[in-house]
Design a protein around this nucleic acid. Structure first.
Lengths: 120, 120
DNA sequence: GCAATAACTCACCCGAAAGTGAGCCTTTAT
DNA sequence: ATAAAGGCTCACTTTCGGGTGAGTTATTGC
């Protein structure tokens, strides 16, 4: 993922320390940005255009949606087909195998959350 | 989890929108704080005191460790036995069933990360 | 000749999370 | 009488990420 970290800061050092300690942190960082897994889930469900995703998430702004889509693509969780290059552009997004496998685990996480919600 | 959100901000509104859209966001928010799953994993592995956790994670400060432990307890992912009330206090942490089940999923996430790391 | 459409990108702001310095409590050892 | 041990908490500063406003591109319809 594209993270803007000022090198040399204690913050950046700790990120490095975390990664060395355990690779799962990279994964957690990649999946935790707001709306990201939501959008991935939607794309898996067949909502495959920028504009229809906007409709699906009315409180998500264009800018953040664009950012999340770019992240998902660079993470190779989704891929895109360029249908029309000239404006108005048309692009179709679709989930990759990597993304599908991730979604299964996210779904386990979801079930876990429901199971223990308000329990004991 | 204890989150300090100023009500009425667009930020807070979006958190609410996210929660309504899908409960998995709450879970993602709970597991993504830095060091948290790391610490949970360590406790599961038997490192059960504040001071020994400090040794296990040299670049993690007392303050953040304290915060993470408090979060883990309030999430009921760990519990604590108070061995000695008077200073120097002695407290043993241990993982709960809820925490154990979560760790299994985190481990899946870890495996997923390794599998797809540097793969196409 | 103006607006709308689709899919973005840039520059900026602000709140939240991460990190830091210091202090607290009581007992035991020096 | 002072320091260390063990487990924190408070107040403060810095960094990061989410959110917002505006602008871009080229085509089609009014």
């Amino acid at each position: 993922m594209s993270s803007q970290l000022k090198p040399g800061t204690s913050n950046a050092c700790n990120i490095i320390a975390l990664s060395l300690a355990c690779e799962v942190n990279d994964v957690l960082r990649d999946i935790s940005p707001r709306w990201k897994m939501q959008v991935l889930h939607r794309i898996a469900a067949g909502t495959n255009q920028f504009s229809s995703l906007k409709v699906a998430f009315p409180s998500l702004s264009d800018q953040i949606l664009g950012k999340r889509l770019a992240e998902l693509v660079s993470d190779k969780l989704i891929d895109k087909n360029i249908i029309e290059v000239k404006a108005p552009k048309r692009i179709h997004y679709f989930i990759t195998d990597k993304g599908l496998e991730l979604l299964k685990i996210i779904d386990d996480l979801h079930k876990w959350g429901l199971k223990w919600r308000d329990l004991l």
